[in-house]
Amino acid sequence: QPAQCNNESLTADSSKGMRQQGIIQHTGNVIFCNKTLHLAADELVLKQTRQQQTYTAKGDPVVINQRNDSFHLTAKSDISEYKPQQSSVDFSGTVNIKLINTDNSQTAIEADQLIYQFQNTDTDELTPVYFQAKGTPAKFQFSRQNDTEVIASAEYIEYSFEQQILTLTGNIRFSQGESLIKAEKLIYNVTNQSWEVPQMDNQRLEIIKKPES
């Protein structure tokens, strides 16, 4: 099982250092891990400036794993850009992310681009903060034991773990149980399973109730 590691380490087939550009490029079977994540890719480029380091990975796909006692995240994409100082990863190109919580809830997103923000609190506790996804459309799926599954798609999807709020914008299709909602903007509260369509000019709201089978 790919997992983080205490001391940042890496293996690769070959590496190239370009000191004038502050770049170290690792190529071929790249495995990288640190306290925050485990990454497998075909190529990993570390770009160092005085203020920041950026790890840009390319792969078919790039696979990132992040776990601790309360969750396990698996993300696949063509490209990922990890910024340790900002505790964030930007994914692009066929993004597929799945997060499983210990309460067996599962959040999954498919998108063209996705920003994953997490937090390394002082206690080294790794905590997901939010997803911001964009797609044509981006797709969202949430399931939890004893709850009705939520399946949604929209041009923009934002999911806040802290507030447990899903915000959908643009060409929305939101399906929960028997109902299907089409709108331009929708906010869904995962905790109490309620949704809201805020007032918007010229917004067309359509609620389709499927007959109870």
Partner: peptide, 29 residues
């Protein structure tokens, strides 16, 4: 800098300040 790399076979281009490790690379910070 902060990164330590080891491997087998290498070259260094002094003009462009580039180095290359040819195989079996292991790295740590």
């Amino acid at each position: 800098g902060l990164f330590k790399l080891s491997g087998t076979g290498f070259s260094v281009d002094l003009l462009n300040e580039n180095y290359q490790i040819d195989s079996q690379v292991e790295g740590s910070k």
